[in-house]
Computed example of a mutant assay.
Amino acid sequence: MGYEEWKPYILCVFSNICFAGFNIVSKVSLDKGMSRYVLVVYGYAFGTLATALLVLLFERNNKGKMSMAVLRDIFFLGLLGAVLGRTLYYAGMEYTSPAFASAMGNLIPSFTFVLALLCRMEKLEIWKVSSQAKIGGTLVALAGATLMTIYKGIVVISPHTRRSHEPAATSSKAFLDWEWIKGSLMLATSSLSLAAFYILQTTTLKKYPAPLTITWLMCLSGTLLAAIMTLIFDHEVSSWRLSWDISLIAPIYCGIMIYGVTTFVQMLVIQKKDPVFVTAFRPLSTILVTLMGLVILRDALHLGSIVGAIMIIFALYTTLWGKRKEKEKKLMENTNFEQGMESKLENQ
């Protein structure tokens, strides 16, 4: 494959590296006492500023026609992404952990696949190997992510830190904890919202093919909606105060790298591929978060994490193989159709 063929894969891997950093940075800032609502507002505000500059540089001469339908979609993108997606994600991560939140994020490919089927963006021909590969890959990825979360097993790598000898709570105890269950439900709802977010991005891009401008307007919509939500749920003036520490780094990173750059990059891939292809890479962030937890947070690496990671990699390869087979078959059908038309014209 040439560079253009590899480009969507490279961009998706880059996006998930950014998502892994997003999990760690967000969790540290929330643990330091930053309000989840304010973190969303500041994050989207920084994203708005960053993408506005990019629009002026690269899409200032965009001739796309802005319509009420596009503005409506942008409003719902802000609602799904900021108010429901990110706020519930932060809330769920506060009650659980970055690794668990990332693992729950692997529901996004499954939800996206189902929504794409309902919206007729994806075909499901259960008797075909390509469809079976996509379904199987999605289920195995979900199983691998779940395994990483609920099964620890023996310690394979244990950094010699203060944390390494502290008694760890067992997975059964965690799942009997009401706050853990509440966090899980929030993360599941966040995943469903973000899956709908990717589907809506696809339809909006078809109406208005200017990914940078859509990203900017989406960030602006998210900022305004998140600010209204914050005024309703967080009345503390002190929550808005930023310090020269992680409380400033977190919204800058989330705003520029996640809500700005990563959203734009994913829209570029959606234009070339589809939302199911983009979300199929999501399990990679679970592996990366686990590795970052090992290196940065000095968390121990257990056997369950290794086995789960192997399952996720296998599932990702299987899903992408199925997508590629479908693409090859479609190209073959188009080629055969064109050749048949040429033969008919020649015979006439």
Rank of each mutant, 00 (worst) to 15 (best):
L345I: 11
P209W: 12
I154N: 11
T230C: 12
E236L: 10
A280Q: 08
K152L: 00
T230Y: 06
L205D: 02
V40T: 15
L11N: 11
T87H: 01
Y37M: 10
M229Q: 15
F75L: 14
G47T: 04
L84Q: 05
E326Y: 03
I270Y: 04
D245E: 00
V237R: 15
L331Y: 08
M332Y: 13
T149D: 08
L331M: 12
L117A: 14
P8A: 15
C254M: 11
V295C: 14
L212H: 06
R163A: 09
D274M: 02
V83P: 14
L142K: 01
T189I: 08
T51F: 07
V114M: 10
G153V: 02
A227I: 10
G137A: 05
D177R: 10
P98N: 05
D177K: 10
P275D: 02
L187A: 07
E236Q: 12
N61F: 08
L187R: 02
K32E: 15
E94A: 06
L185E: 04
K128Y: 06
L303N: 01
I154M: 09
K273V: 14
P8W: 07
M66W: 11
I214Q: 08
P209Q: 11
M93R: 01
F19S: 08
H160F: 06
S243C: 01
L303T: 03
S247V: 00
F197S: 05
R241K: 10
T279Y: 13
I252D: 02
T112L: 09
S191H: 05
